[in-house]
């Protein structure tokens, strides 16, 4: 597989085909990142851009980087992004209406100006020599060649970067650590609190949700002696989401009737 990819990289005509298909797709996906409302969609488009780039790396003789791109970026970093997105709220859609007056037209102008300048600069740039290619550099394989550079010429930078990684990991831990201001209330504390406040009726705990012969689930409220549904027996979250099932069909008389009907 790897050899195949390397072969693709080496042959000019397939590479051009690959570039002209994937290049515009990457740019379009990147533009889409800016235009879609939901952050999750942005993340998926981002992942697509990264995979495209990984292919580009491999096509240009950077096999190791291509694999790392897929594993580290598309795999780890993007998963981290999605994870945080889930933490913050997956479904939330951003308003694309600009709130800072005058920023949008400036941004469009800047986009045109910056892009235009960069592209025209690259177009004007002259290398001064023919394109060398990595054939000789990668003669013993890309990974050993990179390893040789990393652990000789760049070993100092490598060590520093490792220190940076550890520092970042520690920093993230410190930032994410939720410092408790008060002591967590124990069962005993909660019990005392129950007796001190609220009604005595709740001191033994809240009622369980409805458990019936036909139907037992957390989304059905229990019945009070007078036959009405007990609102405290189900989770408030379920009620808020509208997932509570009406318990009246499961009342005693009703159930007998339905049994009788079945017969």
């Amino acid at each position: 597989m790897i050899n195949l990819a390397l072969e693709v990289g080496k042959t000019a005509a397939p590479e051009a085909t690959m570039f002209w298909i994937l290049g515009p797709l990457a740019v379009i996906a990147a533009l889409g990142m800016l235009l879609v409302k939901k952050a999750v969609h942005s993340a998926i488009l981002m992942a697509w851009v990264m995979i495209t780039l990984a292919i580009f790396y491999i096509a240009q003789g950077a096999l190791f980087l291509g694999i790392v791109q897929v594993v580290v970026y598309t795999g780890a970093v993007m998963m981290l992004f999605l994870f945080i997105l889930m933490l913050v709220g997956v479904d939330s859609a951003d308003s694309l209406k600009e709130t800072i007056k005058g920023l949008r037209p400036i941004a469009i102008l800047a986009f045109i100006g910056f892009g235009g300048l960069l592209v025209s600069l690259i177009g004007r740039a002259t290398l001064g020599h023919q394109i060398v290619g990595l054939d000789s550099a990668n003669a013993n394989g890309n990974v050993p060649a990179l390893a040789e550079l990393l652990f000789s010429k760049y070993v100092w930078a490598f060590e520093v970067v490792s220190a940076l990684l550890i520092t970042a990991a520690l920093g993230a831990m410190v930032l994410a650590h939720n410092h408790r201001v008060h002591q967590r209330p124990t069962q005993r504390d909660l019990s005392i609190l129950r007796f001190r406040t609220g009604s005595l009726a709740e001191t033994a705990g809240l009622a369980n949700p409805g458990v019936y012969a036909l139907h037992n689930a957390v989304d059905v409220p229990a019945l009070l002696p007078d036959g009405s549904a007990a609102p405290t027996s189900i989770s408030a979250m379920l009620e808020a989401r509208g997932d509570v099932i009406d318990s009246s069909p499961f009342q005693l008389g009703q159930a007998e009737e339905s049994e009788g009907e079945d017969k």
Binding site: A110, G113, F114, L121
Partner: peptide
């Protein structure tokens, strides 16, 4: 910052 970068590139 972006405008500054544009200025530099310009």
């Amino acid at each position: 910052i972006l405008l500054g970068a544009i200025g530099l590139i310009a």
